Simulated assay, not measured.
Amino acid sequence: MLLLLISSAGATQAKDTTPAVELHGQRFSVEFATDDASRVHGLMMRTTLAPDHSMLFVFSYQAPQAFWMKNTLIPLDILYFDTERRLVSMQLNVPPCKADPCPIYPSNAPARYVLELSAGTAHRIGAQAGDELKIDGDIGTVR
């Protein structure tokens, strides 16, 4: 019996290694877009985005950023974060682009990280300027 207790006590649970971000106390699984090809493609052609899922665009520099919704089929919240991962700008409930030319949705301040969430999520969680974005996962090489 003692041996069984020792082995049970020594057992460890596997840590969840799924990449995630946390914003305003809410955790989202995340896909990283860290190179030009993945940033250009983004969430294009997807018909759904789970409420607990996101895409994080990572740039190697901080500058004004601008996104559009060409070939993006779902409405999104686009949140812009600076180098310190503080929320500096939001474009909320951005609709899919139905015809060219597609509108551009710029940041109101320089940003290095851009988080896309299902439309309405930022409002639902109470996201506001200055919120910190926590990143749990390996971003890898940013190009």
Rank of each mutant, 00 (worst) to 15 (best):
A66Q: 12
A66L: 07
A66M: 10
F67T: 02
F67K: 03
F67S: 05
W68N: 08
M69K: 04
M69I: 08
M69F: 08
K70L: 03
K70Y: 04
K70T: 04
K70R: 15
N71Y: 03
N71W: 01
T72R: 00
T72Q: 02
T72H: 01
L73I: 02
L73S: 12
I74V: 13
I74R: 10
I74W: 11
P75L: 06
P75V: 03
P75N: 06
L76S: 03
L76A: 09
L76K: 02
L76D: 14
L76C: 04
D77Y: 00
I78F: 09
I78H: 07
I78N: 04
L79A: 01
Y80P: 00
Y80M: 02
F81P: 07
F81I: 12
F81A: 08
D82S: 13
D82Y: 09
E84C: 00
R85F: 08
R85V: 05
R86M: 14
R86F: 09
R86E: 14
R86T: 15
R86C: 09
V88W: 08
V88D: 15
V88S: 14
S89N: 01
S89A: 14
S89R: 04
M90H: 10
M90T: 05
M90L: 07
L92Q: 14
L92W: 03
L92V: 11
L92Y: 11
N93P: 03
N93F: 07
V94F: 07
V94S: 04
V94I: 06
P95Y: 12
P95V: 11
P95D: 15
P95S: 11
P96N: 13
C97S: 09
C97Q: 03
C97N: 08
K98V: 10
K98N: 15
K98G: 12
K98I: 09
K98T: 15
A99N: 13
A99M: 12
A99P: 02
D100I: 06
P101I: 06
P101M: 07
P101H: 05
